[in-house]
Design a protein around this nucleic acid. Structure first.
Lengths: 233, 233
DNA sequence: CGACGGGTTGACGGTTGTCAAACCTTGTGG
DNA sequence: CCACAAGGTTTGACAACCGTCAACCCGTCG
């Protein structure tokens, strides 16, 4: 299988390019820039002019904001064939978050200028972009609602369930979240602290809901975890 | 001044129609449906098929989600010449929030079908829509970050400052937030309870930062309030 | 008048943040 | 191959923030 073929299959899964005919996808690929990023280095910083839209072929990325006091808040995680930096579709805008490679990454990106051209030639991309952004608003609002109304344990349960769906790979005895996920990361996604996150994971481990080690979490009992997420008691 | 004239001036302020030539605006107005809504009645419900995009000419609207337990979370408030229900720009989607008139409203709306036609004829609208959605994502992420990292008092301060900018009208001795705003509403915007919100407003009133009565809040000392919002201590 | 809706205040306790200390794993360099 | 450093993790003690509930006040409206 040609590498271009792999890329085609991948890009076809990207919401922005969904439904494009093969010829158009070829065209899109022609204009892509390929790039590799080492673990822990930054792809872009919050506030930088939004020059490129990114799609990952391999690896994973953390998207976060930083508060005035330097505290991080992880807004999202992107894995293979997921898109980020969508603001680059607009002119003269800046990234609202920072993007840091959580693992070594291989990806594609397109410059703002190229995107403008693609948008003109394939109006479907424009529709797809709106749909993607709308979906994004919805997700962020849901996160806000959960943060506003639920307790830490429920929020962490939801986060693990989401990561499981997004980045999970089946293993004997559960689903591994294949992503370097520290307690600190979980805290920064859930609006809590390292210590509270650690305590909750310990308790879940006792109850057989998850198995967790250094930077890795395996969900042993997804149903049980869903129960915790919904628990109103 | 013709009423159409007022509407033109209003619509020109709506981000979705920004930059359109007068003729195009006329066209947009031609396709609008005018509508009046009584206080407290619903314009649409969360989960309804997104048929119409709305713009207010008068009045104000609360946009909120409801949790499984029936708790409300206010995501946004819209006033004159602000837009909501933007999901109607997409096909076959549903509203992610409910919209309820906080005051008697006069507004315009456009059906999904009409919008699709306008999008085709005026590509600028499509660009504007993306920009609007991107802005929306950014705001929601900021709200999330604040909720995740700040304490109730700071969050409420920020909310009042935002409402002040958005719906404030100068008065002797401060800026009145001209919107029926109960303590419960503030709680639902800030991810806290009626009681905590009430306590904090009482304290602020003692310190001369705000003046508040039944369903109304006046910010007497915006700088002081901004100080509270930023306060890291 | 009485009901109702919004607002205030107090008492209490639980969830969760803060900090200190120690443990364990991993990787590195002598 | 061992020693050490660095970073992730755990646990305990403690306190603060804030949610819960009850009681009451006040103004409005039918």
């Amino acid at each position: 299988m040609e590498p271009t073929d792999v890329i085609m299959r991948g890009l076809a899964q990207v919401p922005l390019f969904a439904g494009l005919p093969a010829a158009a996808l070829q065209d899109v690929i022609q204009h892509a820039i390929s790039c590799r990023t080492e673990k822990d280095s930054f792809i872009f910083h919050q506030g930088d002019p939004a020059e490129y839209l990114h799609v990952l072929a391999e690896g994973s990325v953390k998207l976060f904001q930083v508060t005035e006091e330097g505290q991080q808040v992880i807004v999202r995680v992107a894995g293979a064939w997921q898109m980020f930096g969508g603001v680059a579709l607009l002119d003269e805008d800046t990234y609202p978050v920072s993007a840091q490679a959580a693992e070594a990454c291989q990806g594609l990106h397109w410059s703002s200028a190229v995107l403008r051209d693609l948008l003109q030639r394939y109006p479907l991309i424009s529709t797809n972009a709106m749909r993607w952004m709308a979906e994004h608003v919805r997700e962020t609002q849901d996160m806000f609602r959960h943060l506003a109304t639920e307790r830490v344990e429920q929020r962490l349960a939801r986060i693990l369930l989401r990561l499981m769906r997004q980045l999970g790979t089946p293993r004997e005895g559960g689903v591994l979240i294949d992503f370097p996920l520290t307690r600190q990361d979980l805290a920064e996604m859930g609006g809590t602290t390292l210590f509270t996150a650690s305590r909750i994971l310990s308790q879940w481990e006792k109850n057989g809901v998850v198995k967790s080690g250094r930077e890795r979490v395996t969900v042993s009992d997804p149903v049980g975890l869903a129960g915790i997420a919904e628990d109103s008691a």
